[in-house]
Amino acid sequence: MSRGSRRRATFAQALAAEWLKFFTVRSAFWGLLATVVVTVGLSALLALAFVVSLDQLPASRRAAFDPGAYGLAGLNFGVITLGVLGVLTMSGEYSTGSIKSTLAAVPRRGRLLAAKLVVLAVVSLITGLLVSFASFFASQAVFATRGLAATLGQPGLLRAVLGGGLYLALVALFSLGLATIVRHTAGAITAVLGLLFVLPIFGAFLPGEWGATTQKFLPSTAGAAIMNAAETSGSLAPWTGFGVFAGYTAIILAIALWAFRRRDA
């Protein structure tokens, strides 16, 4: 027998539930606050460090100055905080056991994963754009003291700043995918940091032409290329790099969906 109405639960309802779930735990608030404060603060500090030591820098480093990449350097911290937030969105369900209630309410696994992805994408894109623009304006204010400031109207800069937000959003989705596969908070965070931060360190040691090419195609080097105002020899073209990182993210998410559907909760 069935009580109540037989109204079919919809994707919109799953989305509303995931939205509410995201904002009803404190890690969301602290994670987002840390992202904004530390990312913007670091961007300004790094700009300050550059400006202060400008006169001691060799000419080659001065020539390599890119107001986009240099002004958005603090976003690397946002990679960590939004990455962790992306991980917790899924691993928190497993560490607390709430995955059982969640799946009882939304047993269609693909629908649940999609709802989590949409919520995380919206939140991290808004946060990413916010910190990217704030970092840009803060660092340009510092660069202005030495007449190095750039404006969004200059070639490639608006794309670089928008790209910073897009990159951070994609990092969050990449992390959610890894967490769905790994299902443990510590393991997933290790995987995220390993792939995004440790791989490029190894990459830098690879010799020769192929080493340099490999380095360009690593997830974070490829993804961060979109924050360069101008194309550089050390990285892929901005949109190409972003496309490569988007490809990695799509692969991770496809594996995550396959595993999530197939495995016992």
Binding site: R7, A9, V25, A105
Partner: peptide
């Protein structure tokens, strides 16, 4: 169609965040 309207379950008590 709407699982919680047809089935209610108490599994382990700690199924909560």
């Amino acid at each position: 169609p709407a699982p919680l309207r047809e089935v209610g379950a108490l599994l382990e008590a700690k199924s909560v965040h």
